[in-house]
């Protein structure tokens, strides 16, 4: 079962008192306990940071969004239902703040984004990989960099955070079909690049040409 699936599926279990540590911390936060906010921050900071980083590829922006997410948690704590899973709220706010940030900034030049992705994803490809593998990895990064922010959010949640289509649909408040179409578009774009540069194996090329 995927990493966050259990947690998010519990989101539907309304009426059953949640015994998760998050629920208890949120209750404490609602009573003004700022230490509870610190504990929630320590528990979830990596999730928020890497999600914003994956969508925006800007470490400084991801740091700002991390801060803002938890300031909003403090500000709107009273409106959060502690009985519901906390992670979907975190993903939703992180993605929405990433959208806001992206809409206010000039689009990052493609070459700049590719260079950044290569740097952050320093372990991929490994130095001893073949030229073909390196070229394929470069094309994957190119596809990700080309995607609109709204599409990239789906890619990050699906491939990096391992959320299912249904979970992403609930987090982003999108129809499942829209989530699927964004995944399909990314795959299609990668196929086109692989075919165009003859990086697909013959049977895969045959399938799509």
């Amino acid at each position: 079962m995927k990493r966050d699936q259990v947690i998010i599926e519990k989101d539907c279990d309304q009426g059953v008192e949640s015994r998760s540590p998050d629920a208890e911390l949120i209750r404490r936060l609602q009573q003004g306990d700022i230490e509870a906010l610190g504990k929630l921050f320590e528990t979830h900071k990596a999730l928020v940071y890497r999600t914003a980083l994956g969508i925006l590829r800007d470490a400084r922006a991801a740091e700002d969004i991390l801060q803002e997410v938890f300031v909003r948690l403090y500000t709107y704590a009273a409106s959060i239902d502690p009985e519901r899973s906390f992670k979907p709220w975190l993903y939703r706010v992180t993605v929405n703040l990433s959208y806001d940030w992206s809409s206010k900034k000039s689009p990052r030049p493609l070459n700049d984004m590719l260079e950044w992705l290569s740097g952050v994803a320093g372990g991929f490809p490994a130095p001893d990989r073949s030229t073909d593998e390196k070229e394929t990895a470069r094309m994957v990064r190119e596809v990700i960099a080309e995607l609109p922010t709204t599409h990239r959010a789906v890619i990050v949640l699906f491939y990096m955070e391992n959320l299912s289509v249904e979970e992403i649909s609930r987090v982003l408040d999108l129809p499942p079909g829209t989530v699927k179409s964004r995944l399909h578009y990314a795959r299609k774009r990668l196929r086109e690049l692989l075919i165009g540069r003859q990086r697909l194996v013959p049977e895969m090329t045959y399938e799509f040409t």
Partner: peptide, 19 residues
Amino acid sequence: SLDELFRASLSPLSEAKPP
């Protein structure tokens, strides 16, 4: 196969932590 390529490309990011 394409999914695996995406996952492999993003997997280093999944370990990213705020400084």
